[in-house]
Design a protein around this nucleic acid. Structure first.
Lengths: 224, 224
DNA sequence: GCGGGTCTGCACACGATCTTCACAACTTGT
DNA sequence: ACAAGTTGTGAAGATCGTGTGCAGACCCGC
């Protein structure tokens, strides 16, 4: 998830819609506003928001239907706005895929806080299985590695070696340790083998990534 | 959704956890048990349950946080276990994605009944749902698969293999895992069998769909 | 039993990867 | 600055993993 986060606000009350939009813009989001159900769904498809703030009461068809349709095409977190104490709407809303809700009246501060929480939740889900060190990104699930957005193709040994180092940033590891961990260990293996793999990693990811500690071994430096 | 339904039980009280697990196993479910929040989240990611039974009070971080994190990555029905009359927990629980709740103490019969209801509700929802990854479309109800609108005829094994991969987009899966999950596992099965099915999938759906990770296994890439 | 479709195992060829080696370049301590 | 030890480099052979085509086994409906 790179760049500015986009938020779609679907709310028929112009005053509320503008307040919400203004606050979210002040928080650094790119904001689009729709004032009825059908245009909300249309905006969701074209604007591709990272989050939707959705009023339950809407002209056209209501927020629940909007929620259903938005969720049907792709998974987007939805923050629902409900009238006070309207439990039925609330429950149905949660059932059709809303992730959180606010009852009117609400403060803009509270709204902003919830939006941040929701987006953090989502981005955590995405980044939970990856190692991120400066501009170096290692996706553990897909075993993909990129630096400054440029993907590098690593062989199995290179990848294992990198992950082992990346899990212990800046810590110096002896050749023997690296040999045993990354490459499978077998009798009479020359520790010079590690050099070859380090060399390959430097060639593919940049020479500054792995620091040589003379007489000891190697360490991965967090790049900036 | 093929084969046995999987249920994850997250509950720190060993006695309750074992009772629940035993009852659910007797009901024909495959059951995994976690005793704290972090391992619950980890299990949810690897065990990929069809339903989670979740205690609100947990060591590590609490059930609500577990619920949030589980829901953040994929949509799984959650049955929440709460102390009697704890309304706050209940409401927040529903807000973060729980689908039903039981207050302690509860009978195993009641638990089993609720689990069945939840799964029936979900399977109905699932049956109308489809897996959409870029231009790849998998209709789970009719077991139909198409790419860029062109339908492909897959054999049962190929279909199961594809769905298993598609449920974990870009995550690398070992041959052994694929063999066990998609094809039934049996002694002396050669993991090379997987190659044959992957080859068939590539022929029918395009070579770029499934990525080979040398020395590890295969991963499905979201096509663009 | 027969035919078609499907699953599985095998062998070969090819490509990718690992490891080693020799030599150059470098670092360190004296 | 020198020598000794350490690391970088490039290439080459050995090894391993994967793609492919094919054939037998298996299953199921007729």
């Amino acid at each position: 998830m790179t760049g500015q986060r986009r938020v779609l606000v679907v709310e028929d009350d112009i005053t509320i819609a503008e307040s919400v939009a203004a606050r979210l813009r002040a928080e650094g989001f790119e904001v689009a506003v729709a004032h009825d159900g059908p245009s909300g769904v249309a905006f969701a498809a074209s604007f591709l928001p990272d989050l939707v703030v959705l009023d339950v009461m809407l002209p056209g068809f209501d927020g629940l239907e909007v929620c259903r349709r938005i969720q049907a095409s792709r998974s987007v977190p939805v923050l629902m706005l409900t009238a006070r104490g309207d439990e039925t709407d609330l429950l149905v809303g949660l059932a059709v895929g809303a992730d959180d809700y606010l009852t009117k009246p609400f403060s803009m501060r509270e709204l902003a806080a919830r939006v941040h929480v929701l987006l953090r939740r989502v981005s955590r889900a995405v980044s939970s299985r990856s190692l991120e060190l400066g501009d170096l990104l290692i996706d553990l699930a897909s075993r993909r590695v990129s630096r400054s957005g440029v993907e590098a193709h690593l062989t199995p040994t290179e990848y294992d070696l990198l992950v082992f180092l990346a899990e212990r940033p800046s810590a110096v590891q002896a050749r023997e340790r690296l040999l045993a961990e990354a490459c499978g260990w077998h009798e009479g293996a020359s520790s010079r083998t590690v050099d070859s793999h380090v060399k390959a990693l430097r060639r593919k990811l940049g020479a500054d990534l792995i620091r040589t500690v003379h007489g000891v071994g190697y360490a991965l430096e967090v790049p900036r």
